[in-house]
Simulated assay, not measured.
Amino acid sequence: MSTNITFHTGSVSAEERPALLSQKGVTVWFTGLSASGKSTVACALEQHLLHLHKFTYRLDGDNIRFGLNKDLGFDDKSRNENIRRIGEVSKLFADACCIALTAFISPFRADRAVARELHEKAGLAFVEVYIDAPLAVVEARDPKGLYKKARSGEIKDFTGISSPYEAPESPEIHIKTDECDVAEAVKRITEYLTEKKFI
């Protein structure tokens, strides 16, 4: 761990950036089982926000593992580090007044709490969105065939099958994708962001 470093704050004040960009930074953290609809809803929300001329960017589990986190596996320690890094990156995006959308299983409450705390200590907003669907529903969807492989033992430490998923206890937004379509999910999240004056 580096000790001879100093954080450089730059010359842009905390008030100047949001005033110039006409929006506040916030991380919208999607969590839920694989195939629950996290990425689908996050993609649709990103499109909607861009059409509203909002500065937004989506960080997705698969895409991040092709680059920033390609050195990590799927054991518990690697998953902790995966979410820690994403928490740090999304915090930087939010600090830049971006609406950062993160779509990760992020199975452990403690890891999500660390990501939230990173934001709160920096005076940045963190909105947890629980994309909820029953195990039977996500297994029936299984677009990548991952549940089938997990059931057959081809994939070890698979969330929901051989590794636990700890559902949020009090998320800001709770969306059940077996009862709610993508358009309605985007509408609900947009209404929340509008109500809280993020957009």
Rank of each mutant, 00 (worst) to 15 (best):
M1C: 08
M1S: 13
S2I: 01
N4W: 00
H8I: 06
H8V: 02
H8D: 09
T9C: 02
G10P: 13
G10L: 02
G10Y: 11
S13R: 01
S13A: 06
A14G: 07
A14F: 04
E15L: 01
E16A: 12
P18A: 00
L20S: 11
K24F: 00
K24I: 00
G25M: 02
V28H: 14
W29Q: 13
F30Y: 09
F30D: 10
L33S: 13
A42G: 15
A44F: 12
E46W: 02
Q47A: 04
L50A: 01
F55Y: 09
Y57N: 07
Y57T: 03
D60I: 00
G61P: 15
N63A: 07
R65Q: 08
D71A: 10
G73A: 12
G73W: 02
F74V: 08
N80G: 07
I86G: 09
G87N: 06
G87W: 06
L92V: 03
L92Y: 11
A94S: 15
A96S: 15
A96P: 12
A100F: 05
S106I: 03
S106K: 07
P107R: 11
R109S: 14
D111F: 03
R112E: 11
A113H: 15
E117A: 12
L118W: 09
L118G: 04
H119L: 01
A125Q: 15
E128R: 03
E128D: 08
E128T: 01
Y130N: 14
P134I: 03
L135P: 13
A136C: 08
E139G: 05
A140V: 05
D142W: 01
D142H: 02
L146V: 08
K148I: 00
R151C: 04
G153M: 08
E154K: 12
I155G: 10
I155N: 12
I155H: 12
S162Y: 06
S163M: 03
Y165E: 14
E166Q: 13
E166R: 01
P168G: 09
E169V: 02
P171M: 07
I173H: 14
I173K: 13
H174E: 04
I175P: 13
D178V: 00
E179D: 12
D181Q: 09
A183Q: 11
A183T: 10
K187S: 10
E191W: 00
T194V: 06
T194K: 07
T194C: 06
E195H: 15
K197I: 01
F198R: 01
